[in-house]
C-alpha cells in the first residue's frame, strides 16, 4: 500500500487530507459520519475573541457547481471554543488546527496567543482572507505590506507553527505569499473564497446584505489550482492547496502543482463523509499511477 504521509516541515501528517475551516464545524458534528482519526488534520471554524451573530440571511446562494456564502463567521467566542477543543482532543488524536480571525491586528494577535497556549492545539491558521466581514470584501491578505506587518506581530507572540491563509482576491498573490514567508509563516494555505456577486433581478438589489460574497466549490477549482501552482513555484515554505476538491484525483492534481497537503471545504456539506471517500480514491489513484509516496509527484508538473 502506498505511503500517504506528508511532511509540512514542522510536522508530519498521516495523509494530506484536511477538512477546511468553516466547512467542518468543530469536528464533533462529523463523528456520526467518520472516524476523525483517519484524516490528516482538521481545521476548526474561524474564531474571533468574542461571539459573533453572523450576517443577516440570506447567507447562501447556489451557483453552477459552486456556492456563494456570506455567513459572516457566526459562532462562539474564544473562551467557549477552548472548552470545545478540550472535548474534541479527548475524542481524536488527529492534529487540531485553529483558524484565527480578527477585526484588527491586535485581535488577531490576542486570539492567536490564546490558542497557541493550548497544548491540545497543533498549529494555527491565520485567516487574513475572509471576504465576509468588511463591506467590499476587504481583508489583510489583499495587501503584502499589511500581511507582513500582521504575520510578524502574530508570529513574535507565539511558539506554535503558523499557517497563513491567503486570498485569491489579492492583486498579486505571489507578493503576499512572499511577504507572509518573510514575516515568519511556517506554511501557507490557499485559497479562501473568491469574491462574487449575486443579484435579485426583481428587486434590483444584491442578494446579500453585505453585497459581495465568497465563491467556493467545484466551480473554482481551475482558478484555485492556478494560484496554488504560481505560489508553490515562488516560495520555500510548504503550501496547503484548496478550492473545489471533490475527488482523489483532485487531491493529486494539487500535489502535482506543488502543494504539500490539501484542504476540502464545500464538499463536506454535500457529502458529510466526503473525506472517507476521497481518501479511498486517493489510494486507488496512487496505485493506478504506481506511486509509492506523494513526494514522487509533488511539484512535478512539467511545463
Amino acid at each position: 500500500m502506498a505511503d500517504l504521509s506528508v511532511d509540512l516541515g514542522f510536522c508530519r501528517l498521516k495523509n494530506p487530507l484536511i477538512p477546511a475551516s468553516g466547512t467542518f464545524g468543530y469536528g464533533e458534528e462529523f463523528v456520526p459520519f467518520m472516524d476523525l482519526d483517519i484524516i490528516g488534520a482538521l481545521v476548526l471554524k474561524g474564531i474571533y475573541r468574542n461571539a459573533r451573530p453572523g450576517n443577516p440571511p440570506p447567507r447562501l446562494f447556489e451557483t453552477p457547481a459552486g456556492l456563494l456564502n456570506s455567513i459572516g463567521l457566526a459562532g462562539p467566542g474564544a473562551d467557549e471554543l477552548q472548552g470545545v477543543i478540550r472535548r474534541l482532543s479527548a475524542t481524536t488524536r488527529t492534529p487540531i488546527i485553529v483558524n484565527v480571525c480578527g477585526q484588527d491586528d491586535a485581535e488577531f494577535a490576542e486570539v492567536a496567543g490564546i490558542f497557541a497556549a493550548m497544548p491540545e492545539v497543533a498549529m494555527l491558521e491565520l485567516n487574513i482572507s475572509c471576504p465576509n466581514i468588511k463591506r467590499g470584501g476587504a481583508c489583510p491578505a489583499q495587501d503584502e505590506k499589511h500581511t507582513y506587518r500582521l504575520v510578524k506581530r502574530v508570529k513574535e507572540n507565539i511558539a506554535k507553527p503558523l499557517i497563513v491563509k491567503l486570498s485569491p482576491n489579492a492583486a498579486d498573490i505571489v507578493a503576499v505569499a512572499r511577504a507572509a514567508q518573510e514575516a515568519g509563516a511556517d506554511a501557507l494555505s490557499l485559497v479562501n473564497t473568491f469574491l462574487g456577486l449575486a443579484v435579485d433581478l426583481e428587486k434590483r438589489r444584491p442578494v446579500f446584505a453585505n453585497t459581495l460574497a465568497g465563491l467556493s466549490g467545484p466551480a473554482i477549482k481551475p482558478l484555485a489550482l492556478r494560484l496554488v501552482w504560481e505560489v508553490c513555484r515562488q516560495v520555500r515554505i510548504p503550501v496547503i492547496g484548496m478550492g473545489g476538491i471533490t475527488s482523489g484525483k483532485d487531491v493529486l492534481e494539487y500535489i502535482l502543482v506543488g502543494a504539500s497537503a490539501v484542504q476540502i471545504g464545500t464538499v463536506n456539506f454535500c457529502e458529510p463523509a466526503a473525506a472517507v471517500r476521497i481518501l479511498a480514491e486517493l489510494e486507488k489513484e496512487m496505485e493506478k499511477l504506481r506511486l509509492n509516496n506523494l513526494n514522487e509527484i509533488k511539484g512535478k508538473l512539467a511545463v
Partner: peptide
C-alpha cells in the same frame, strides 16, 4: 423552512432571527 447548505448544523446558512434578537 430556510435555505440549507448542510442540514446538520455546520454551515450557519439557515439562520432565522429569534424574538430575543439572536439567530
Amino acid at each position: 423552512e430556510a435555505v440549507m447548505g448542510c442540514g446538520f448544523g455546520v454551515c450557519h446558512s439557515c439562520a432565522v432571527a429569534a424574538a430575543d434578537g439572536r439567530y
